[in-house]
Design a protein around this nucleic acid. Structure first.
Lengths: 217, 217
DNA sequence: ACGTGTGAAGTCGTTCACAGCG
DNA sequence: CGCTGTGAACGACTTCACACGT
């Protein structure tokens, strides 16, 4: 079952869908009932045509002369992302970043729950973090299977990253959010997204060069 | 002083420059002296033409028949990013994520040092985190000026984000790395990059739909 | 009149393919 | 001969502009 009606969807459009959903949830919380593509676009620094085009890759959600019914569009976007049901998720690596992720409160409202924590360091195993016990890597495959986990967060040192990724893939994980600054090799069918904080700072450092640089979000 | 010889540089190219630098540092650590665009590209899942094109936006760094001298190219890239000198950086917000960032060891090797921590919560002020004292927001402007800080990490709740961003900009910050899931309004000349962990999970959730999806890094 | 959905036009980024240097 | 640097061809993404529904 796919969600893009024939035409294949530009990757940037998929990224923007997340922004739309976030903004729509905000508008819903403010009690708004509908939005036009123009208002939605303006609040995100985009153009109205962009918003309409992105949405129509997945269906026709708006009503001419009216706009988009917010609650309905939220439902549709969640269905598209697969976050209309809660996805069990795991985390490997409980260093600085891992511990922050383990107690982060932002996942549940987005449709994800951390259900298991893993670490290779024997001294960390058994620790109680965010009301969960840290498990040894040997339990990974079993937990993934029994809980039906498909997504994993990975916050391990560079030196361990590829090895851990291999174990996650072997266990059946289909998507990895990787915080280590390395490119992971994974087989087809597995998706990796990288979040490299230092690299983002590097980008900022570049972009603010040239005294009166133009603004940019 | 700008670094892009006339032609303006595609944004994706700038992103890739960070990858090149990271990989080159790895190769340098392995004792390699030169790389060809082909080898560099393959290790990152890109094409050789892409690597060459990206690099030539900034200069001619290679030697035909030989490739790129690694140590030299690293120096050039650091100069391009402005990370050949260490940049003092600040952090606002010492919740889960902020505390992880405050003790993260990955900034220094990339040319950044955290020199000050701020929080609005009176109970957090004065705490010692990562060998630094948490300061009240009232000290922000003074510290930015005296330390010459231009970059800031922001890990505050959504509800406070715009207000904190305004204060950072007012104090003279030119680049903000924002961990809150909101679009910040900032004046021209200030750059914001957003890191939204939950949104990245959402993306992964989408991409692994459709059973035998094609691999992607 | 307002606002969506969408082909067509336009812009931006990537890949090709080759001239030329070492 | 290997490999860079680069115009030119190609493809991807965005913006335009308007037909049509409400």
């Amino acid at each position: 079952m796919t969600f893009s009606r024939g035409h294949d969807v530009p990757n940037p459009a998929i990224r923007r869908l997340s922004l739309y959903l976030r903004q729509l949830e905000l508008l819903a919380a403010e009690g708004q009932a509908t939005v036009s593509s123009r208002r939605l676009a303006q609040s995100l620094g985009l153009t109205d045509a962009q918003v309409r085009k992105d949405l129509t890759y997945f269906g026709q959600f708006g009503r001419p002369g009216v706009g988009y019914e917010i609650k309905l569009l939220i439902q549709n976007l969640r269905r598209i992302f697969g976050t209309d049901r809660v996805s069990p998720t795991l985390l490997v690596g409980l260093g600085n970043i891992g511990r922050a992720l383990a107690t982060y409160q932002g996942f549940n409202p987005k449709g994800f729950t951390l259900v298991a924590l893993f670490d290779a360091d024997p001294r960390k195993i058994g620790l109680e973090i965010g009301s969960m016990r840290v498990r040894p890597m040997s339990e990974l495959a079993g937990v993934v299977a029994s809980e039906g986990i498909r997504l994993g967060l990975m916050a391990v040192p560079v030196s361990a990253a590829q090895d851990v990724a291999d174990q996650m893939v072997q266990a059946g994980i289909r998507g990895i959010l990787n915080f280590a600054p390395v490119r992971l090799g994974v087989p087809p069918g597995v998706v990796v997204h990288n979040l490299d904080v230092a690299a983002e700072l590097e980008q900022l450092s570049f972009l603010i060069r040239g005294q009166a640089g133009m603004g940019h979000s």
